[in-house]
Design a protein around this nucleic acid. Sequence first.
DNA 1: CGCCCTATTGAGATTCATCAACTGCGGTGG
DNA 2: CCACCGCAGTTGATGAATCTCAATAGGGCG
Lengths: 242, 242
Amino acid sequence: MLQIKATSSSSGKSAATAAVASDRPSGCTEGCTFFQSGACKTTELRGPRTKFARRQPVYSEGDAATHCYRVVEGAVRLSRILSDGHRQILDILMPGDSFGLEVADYFTATAEAVGEVVLLRCPRACIERRSETDHRRDLLVMLSRSLTAAQDHVAMLGHQGAKERVAAFLIKLAHAQNCGANQPLDLPIGRQDIADYLGLTIETTCRTMTDLKISQIISIPNRSQVVIRNFSRLEAVAEGDA
Amino acid sequence: MLQIKATSSSSGKSAATAAVASDRPSGCTEGCTFFQSGACKTTELRGPRTKFARRQPVYSEGDAATHCYRVVEGAVRLSRILSDGHRQILDILMPGDSFGLEVADYFTATAEAVGEVVLLRCPRACIERRSETDHRRDLLVMLSRSLTAAQDHVAMLGHQGAKERVAAFLIKLAHAQNCGANQPLDLPIGRQDIADYLGLTIETTCRTMTDLKISQIISIPNRSQVVIRNFSRLEAVAEGDA
DNA sequence: CGCCCTATTGAGATTCATCAACTGCGGTGG
DNA sequence: CCACCGCAGTTGATGAATCTCAATAGGGCG
């Protein structure tokens, strides 16, 4: 299996290279809306932005946790390389999602831009300093959401088969994109990434998708799009009523 | 397979029955040290305590999230029942661990006492009200720790085989109990619980443990204890160098 | 046009789940 | 004290699902 090794040196300021706006080391000031609308997925966000190119690491596992981020445009994948060389994708972050919120000195996962990505970037010092209740609360909400997502992930990996996993993934994507039946659904990541997210091999992922295609539940116009033909049958597959 | 159905009605105040101390609905006051020493695992904690008997639910999935908790004595298991009836244990909480911190209206998992358990119980209103920076920060630390634990869990379930999972579980337990080689390690939960935590069947869990025993890596004096004979070999197994 | 990379399909090996039987221990009651 | 029961754990045999290795296809780009 093709294993994607860490695509960057694991040390140091991987994020600094593509900074678009200067980040004042003392924290984001009046302009920054990082904490605003913590519960809102689609908001115009002001404040220092940073752009990342395809495959560029935002930060790597072990880097000093100096900033936290929110996705404005594009998608980011959170992953870890396990000791056996395999990669586990912990989360796919879409616009509105926050990450890097760990209250720890060093990041415990690697964050990489999937395609072109625009991020809102907030120095950790900012969080320490800002004591306004609302901001703190928003931070709690974001962390809490990440926790629930991780627990959902655990539940899925624990006792579900390949069909259930792939179906659940497609449904989750459809919800995130607000995409109904018979509308094209964009896959933000490739097959290998999907496989690493679902804890499967790329082959099993492929086969399962073709099975769904043969069953007329989805169609696959091209490699980066899927159309859900029959939502309820897809949901049935996700529930294990295959 | 024996499936443990939710052991309580899924509605309402499952936690109230065994309350030892009265909980003032307006929040825990001066006496409560829920937030103190958020980073410390072994601390004397003051404040309202609650005792739970073996198998008693602390709260159930779907209950209103009115309180959060910290384990003082004993162990608590966090679990979900999946749509196919299977159970996934999300976490085993030991003394010092906090849970129920979700910033949501309803709990997304069930918490049950494994044996006799003593908990510290803090009304959610308390969190909303207390704006002291340190408390907020402690809450963030606790949530952050839960998130990292869940991500570790995901990484394990994603790409590891049965041997790796069981070995990693034993090592994790040993660390939690500060237990070295050739010392008896207490298993706080039974085989079925271990299996549900590791995403395996009880049979596979058993077999894997006997394999470890045959390999002289561990010994099993009785069903609730394990002795790690060779720590480094166990670690090797956990890393996949079986 | 040809190359590269990703995705797909095929065949065989391996692991784990499933179904089923049995063991060992603790408690209960004759 | 022993017989019995019940439960948690263990072991065995089998099959299904997934991984692995290998070959092929297809799309984008110089």
